[in-house]
Write a protein that binds this DNA or RNA. Sequence first.
DNA 1: TGCATATTTCATTTTTTTTTGAAAACTTTG
DNA 2: CAAAGTTTTCAAAAAAAAATGAAATATGCA
Lengths: 170, 170
Amino acid sequence: MPSTPITGNQPEQVINQDLEIESIDFFVRMMGMLGMPRSVGEIYGLLYFSPSPLPMDKIVSRLGISLGSASQGLKTLRSLKAVRTSYVPGDRRDHYLAETEFRRLFANFIKEEIMPHMESAKERIERMENALPVESEESEEFYKIRIEKLKRLTRAGGRLLPALAGLLKF
Amino acid sequence: MPSTPITGNQPEQVINQDLEIESIDFFVRMMGMLGMPRSVGEIYGLLYFSPSPLPMDKIVSRLGISLGSASQGLKTLRSLKAVRTSYVPGDRRDHYLAETEFRRLFANFIKEEIMPHMESAKERIERMENALPVESEESEEFYKIRIEKLKRLTRAGGRLLPALAGLLKF
DNA sequence: TGCATATTTCATTTTTTTTTGAAAACTTTG
DNA sequence: CAAAGTTTTCAAAAAAAAATGAAATATGCA
């Protein structure tokens, strides 16, 4: 029997089985679109409709995933600021809470996951320009135009994506 | 020795090795961000800087991928309207050309790959509302608020994403 | 400090995705 | 219409990604 704080075992609040399942399903797919693994979606989906913060071992038992997955998944979610820990008196475990302001979540996602790629894209374009051989042979124009398009693409991405999150009014 | 049209083998136009490599690298990563497999990025990257349309077997030999991959990849790219075929007189093979208007490409991507998910998301939210038990028990408010947030999220996504592609001025 | 609990890390296993390769199905043209 | 060329399809192999589980590490409490 696992020991628990002095307050004793909270009654297993199986508040709303169906809702929970739909929520997990929803976020597994949404996170999937953003390239996140299943477990990350599951955890967020569970927390999203949890009225009280959950400790990792409860996440593990409710979802039937491994401790390792849960730890990894929570680390990812923390880094995206999609969950935060909340202190629960008389319990040494960390308790997790879903961050539900999607606008901020997207802003973070863009900053953490997209923008770094934009940076390296710019470097790659520079290398293209260097690879472009000496001055305008007949059809060098073609290459220049293509490169110019890439530049515009990355410039637009670099400016619009961060702006986007700000513009969003959910 | 493979036979070719009466016009004979075009000289292998190894126009710009380095540029090609950078381009492939660039698009492999970009397509990767959009969840597309490596081969799709490779093909597009090759075509992007190809001054002339390429038949599938040339794509295969340049990239060192299998016929199957090339066929699959081109099918994907066609469905996204990221490539189109162009007729080359005296040659029965299809020749492929990269579509380079990124604005249109994104519009297509959003329509084909994102919007369908939005639709099913809406259905899933409806199911959540049904799963929500009878009238407002004490804390049912909590659940209603969460569901409302999801609704706003999908509404925003459904309207903004298609608009986005139109707004983009590359 | 030392014990018990909680969490992270990471090599291994499992699952999923992508690629291959070869057979089947088309297509064109002689 | 047959033969040669071209493309698609799809079962099997290979590669990549994710999950597991257990050892290592950290944390807090008596």
